[in-house]
Design a protein around this nucleic acid. Structure first.
Length: 272
DNA sequence: ACTATTTCCTGGATGC
DNA sequence: TGCATCCAGGAAATAG
């Protein structure tokens, strides 16, 4: 399940591999469409465009597109890819087998193909201009702005962390991991956190995201980066997916509760 | 304006 | 072995 660190890893890998390449042809699957715009519009927006850069905004992958004919690199539209739960963007030799649930194939001038594969179809594709994810970036947000996001909110802090309109990029894994490292229970009402706890959560969230990026993300289920490589942050998980096992810090059994319809894992002793 | 709940979707795990 | 059921969860839609 790609969250900020996984999407960052994928975007960096793609930037390295396909920046400067030109889209020669486009195939878009029919199925129940993961497309925001019509297939014809998307194809027209992608065809013959140069990929200037690939980067991350929140959990979205942004392909900056430019005209391939002109010498200047003036950006026009952007191809936005959200991987949802199970989406993958793969750079493949054209001869390689097309995986089941492939919804888009971009043939590149370099001879390779960029393929979007997504079994569960929670992923989304869109053509936009000047896209920025709705929430604030967790890696750059100030402690003050961070604290202000949660002031007066009655919702559990876990729900608030997952709310992409507040912070963009935090998902279930890193919300749980940041809360454990900050010593705060996921069910705590956001507004009841002390300023000290908010300060810690701000610090620990940044820390855990940065460390996860350094390790190439967490490979849970089928996550792989643009090179097909798995990440290693899952070995650093202290609570996520560790229900019933001992907390590494104090030995107390890790508990699981459902908040906002999501599994939330925490240590009843370390987290207040 | 918020908050909580439901829905989408398939594959892997589990149970009888 | 085979079939049914459950569960994973990001974000949009819906309801309160």
């Amino acid at each position: 399940m790609p969250e900020l660190p996984e999407v960052e890893t994928i975007a960096r890998g793609l930037a390295r591999r396909v920046s400067g390449d030109v889209i020669e042809s486009v195939w878009l699957g029919s199925k129940p469409e993961p497309l925001k715009s019509s297939a014809a519009d998307m194809e027209a927006a992608l065809n013959a465009k140069k990929i200037l850069n690939v980067r991350r905004s929140g959990k979205h992958i942004v392909f900056d597109l430019g005209e391939s004919g002109t010498s200047g690199d003036s950006a026009s539209a952007q191809w936005i890819v959200h991987l949802g739960m199970t989406g993958q963007l793969l750079v493949c030799p054209p001869a390689s087998e097309v995986a089941k649930h492939t919804h888009a194939v971009l043939r590149l001038a370099s001879g390779r193909e960029l393929r979007f594969v997504d079994p569960r179809r929670f992923g989304r594709l869109a053509i936009l201009e000047n896209f920025t994810a709705p929430g604030l970036e967790p890696l750059t947000i100030s402690a003050t702005d961070f604290a202000n996001l949660f002031r007066d909110r009655k919702t559990p802090i876990k729900s608030a962390l997952l709310n992409q309109k507040l912070l963009s990029g935090v998902g279930n894994i890193y919300a749980d991991e940041a809360l454990h490292r900050a010593g705060v229970r996921p069910g705590r009402r956001a507004a009841t956190l002390t300023s000290e706890q908010l300060r810690r959560l701000h610090k620990r969230l940044k820390q855990v995201l940065k460390e996860a990026i350094r390790l190439g993300g967490s490979s849970i289920s089928d996550y792989v980066d643009a090179d097909g490589e798995e990440g290693f942050f899952q070995i650093k998980h202290r609570v996520y997916g560790r229900t019933g096992r001992p907390c590494g810090k104090c030995g107390t059994t890790i508990k699981r509760v459902v908040i906002a319809g999501r599994s939330s894992h925490y240590c009843p002793k370390c987290q207040k």
